[in-house]
């Protein structure tokens, strides 16, 4: 680790005492810790197509960061890079750095094991994909993978995760029942519980409500806002209102580039870049 990077990192970590903190729900950058950052990050698919071009972006600790942009802009590709999902398919290539704070470890560095990355960064997919097992086993899956054997520990972690994902009341009486018998919205909250159970450092949500009806969507949005007190969330969404409602920071992407990144209020009320403005006012996308 070279020295100037260290300096830069400490510069991001200005922690102000609690008493000086203003009350707003979405505080300004000076009061925030960094959880991860992308530095000059690019991504190439196996066919040579560069889907992400030189992105620099911070991910704040225990805040919701939304990535928006028109279809094909690379927002899902970017999200899936953060837990190395692209490594499942041969030929894909990352460039630059994705640095996890405060350790300063590069997730895509040489020798960084994608399996270890996924132990630390959890993910929820676009379509609810519970495993064909019981509700209990779905939530316990992450712990079992990590070699947890103690039944009491697993029992407790399953309950905590289901409560955090706001799906405990609907499932507590049928934990041994099949996960596929739940409704789509419940399945997606179960998938969130599954990702939360091993306490990930970052939770990635890839358009988690695009397959759900408005009521189920509202529940998940509430849940994301509650979770943001305790876990760092990065969410990709097609729905601009959703980004405006639930995120603290918004990144706007266009054809693989990060056009604008900033406070969600600022992006939606006073975008600096004309492209961002025309996107959020519905001129394309």
């Amino acid at each position: 680790m070279d020295t100037d990077m260290k300096v830069e990192r400490t510069a991001h970590r200005r922690i102000v005492p609690e008493s000086d903190m203003p009350p707003p729900i979405k505080p300004s950058p000076e009061h925030e810790t960094l959880r991860a950052r992308l530095e000059d990050f690019s991504f190439y698919y196996s066919n040579g197509f560069q889907a992400i071009k030189h992105v620099d972006m911070p991910i704040l600790d225990r805040k919701v960061t939304a990535i928006i942009g028109p279809s094909g802009c690379g927002k899902s590709t970017l999200l899936r890079s953060i837990n190395r999902m692209h490594d499942l398919y041969p030929g894909n290539r990352y460039e630059g750095r994705i640095i996890l704070e405060p350790e300063g470890e590069n997730l895509i560095g040489k020798g960084a094991d994608p399996v270890i990355v996924r132990l630390r960064v959890g993910m929820v997919f676009q379509k609810p994909n519970p495993f064909p097992k019981s509700i209990y086993e779905n939530v316990a899956a992450g712990l079992r993978v990590r070699g947890v054997k103690d039944r009491h520990v697993i029992d407790e972690a399953v309950e905590t995760a289901l409560r955090r994902a706001a799906v405990w009341d609907e499932t507590k009486d049928k934990l041994k029942g099949s996960a596929s018998d739940l409704s789509g919205g419940q399945q997606q909250r179960l998938c969130i519980a599954r990702a939360l159970a091993p306490n990930p450092e970052i939770l990635l949500l890839d358009e988690p409500t695009s397959a759900l009806d408005p009521i189920a969507t509202a529940k998940i949005e509430d849940l994301i806002q509650e979770l943001s007190d305790s876990v760092t969330i990065v969410i990709v969404t097609h729905n601009m209102q959703q980004a405006a409602r639930i995120s603290h920071r918004t990144a706007f992407m266009y054809i693989g580039e990060l056009i604008e990144f900033g406070d969600t209020n600022q992006i939606f009320t006073n975008p600096r870049h004309p492209r961002t403005e025309s996107y959020i006012t519905g001129r394309y996308g």
């Binding site: 499942l88 996924r118 132990l119 630390r120 519970p130 992450g142 990590r146």
Partner: peptide
């Protein structure tokens, strides 16, 4: 086996052997 099931299994941090043994073979 749908790719989404495999991705889900890798997504919880499972190693290739765990994915094969616990998810792919049963399915």
């Amino acid at each position: 086996i749908p790719q989404i099931v495999k991705e889900g299994a890798y997504g919880i941090g499972a190693d290739q052997w765990q994915v094969m043994w616990n998810y792919i073979i049963p399915a």
